[in-house]
């Protein structure tokens, strides 16, 4: 078992993603194990400066003005040892009229007592587009504590989309804290999909401020808690400008002894702004369940498929 001295392929392979993307000269990547950069490849217009620290890295990512990166950029963070801390400090600057999509793979397959701390400051320039998909791969032990924190500033007509996904393996503890501030006509979508079991603890705090005229935002949470897992979801969306539009959408399925709470807060401070919200917490819908059972699936198989759909 690869545990102590991986190369970039070894670490990347634990994500289950095809590592051939690391060999593609037209695709940028950055692979970081604990506090060491195992591999990096950039494409024109994209700059990444990394400083290795004792328990992680400080990284500055800049995308030049007017540059659109065609292929997704793959970033892999992770630790293979059972214990340790990985702290990632990211400063992201997406310049005006540019575009980039990042797939972040965070892998902790053998963690017994690991902390993964992410502290990101993100600026998306005017008319630029930044898409960030963060997918976590954890082991079965539940020995990971994940603290992703990000503050995002969107300039006029900027577009920011992020999805956080933790579906495979045990969550352990996750404490998400994202905040986005939107200028005129900018668009943000923040989505979290998390599958908790055992004694996992899930905390999601997503805050959006629609400060610019015509800005739009959607906060979406999809969570399943089984066993003795617990989820607390706090979504706050504020609109303070004319024609700002927003929606908060939280759905949590609980099974067994799971506990889920949802606190959607919508605040509108302009008569021409509009925000809606919906929140649903409960067991699996009986009609969905009975439809699948009427096709021959047993109850456990049906529940599994419904949750898989919800989190997909």
């Amino acid at each position: 078992m690869l545990k102590q001295k991986p190369d970039k392929f070894g670490l990347f392979d634990t994500t289950g993603f095809d590592h051939s993307v690391l060999e593609d000269p037209n695709s940028a990547h950055l692979v970081v194990h604990h506090n060491k950069v195992l591999g990096a490849h950039l494409v024109p217009g994209l700059h990444v400066d990394v400083e290795e620290m004792e328990d992680g890295i400080n990284a500055k990512l800049v995308l030049d003005e007017g540059i659109t990166i065609e292929n997704p950029v793959h970033i892999c963070f992770g630790m293979l040892p059972e214990k340790g801390i990985q702290k990632i400090v990211m400063d992201v600057d997406i310049k005006k009229d540019s575009g980039i999509m990042i797939y972040a793979h965070c892998t902790f397959p053998f963690a017994v007592d690991v902390q993964h701390i992410m502290d990101a400051k993100i600026h998306v320039g005017e008319n630029a587009k930044y898409t960030y998909f963060e997918r976590h791969i954890h082991g079965k032990q539940g020995g990971v504590k994940v603290y992703p924190k990000a503050i995002v500033h969107l300039d006029k007509r900027a577009n920011f989309k992020t999805e956080f996904e933790l579906i495979k393996g045990r969550v352990g503890l996750i404490d998400i804290d994202y905040e986005t501030i939107c200028r005129d006509e900018s668009v943000m979508e923040m989505t979290a999909r998390i599958n908790g079991s055992g004694d996992d603890i899930i905390k999601i705090k997503e805050v959006g401020s629609l400060e610019g005229e015509g800005s739009r935002g959607v906060l979406t949470s999809r969570v399943a808690v089984r066993g003795n897992a617990r989820a607390d979801v706090y979504n706050k969306l504020t609109a303070t400008a004319a024609y700002a539009r927003g929606h908060v959408d939280c759905k949590e399925i609980i099974q067994d002894n799971g506990i889920a709470t949802a606190i959607p807060i919508v605040e509108v401070r302009h008569p021409k702004a509009h925000i809606t919200h919906e929140a649903a917490i409960g067991s699996v819908d009986s009609k969905e369940l009975e439809t699948l059972m009427a096709r021959g699936l047993n109850e456990d198989e049906a529940v599994e498929l419904i949750i898989e759909g919800l989190l997909s």
Binding site: R295, L297, A302, S312
Partner: peptide, 24 residues
């Protein structure tokens, strides 16, 4: 139970079919 009846060969289509979020 329903699933056992289904495995024996009985099934039902609802008047208003269920909605499955995200399920392809």
């Amino acid at each position: 139970d329903i699933d056992e009846r289904a495995r024996k060969g009985i099934t039902l289509a609802w008047q208003e079919p269920a909605r499955f979020e995200g399920l392809s």
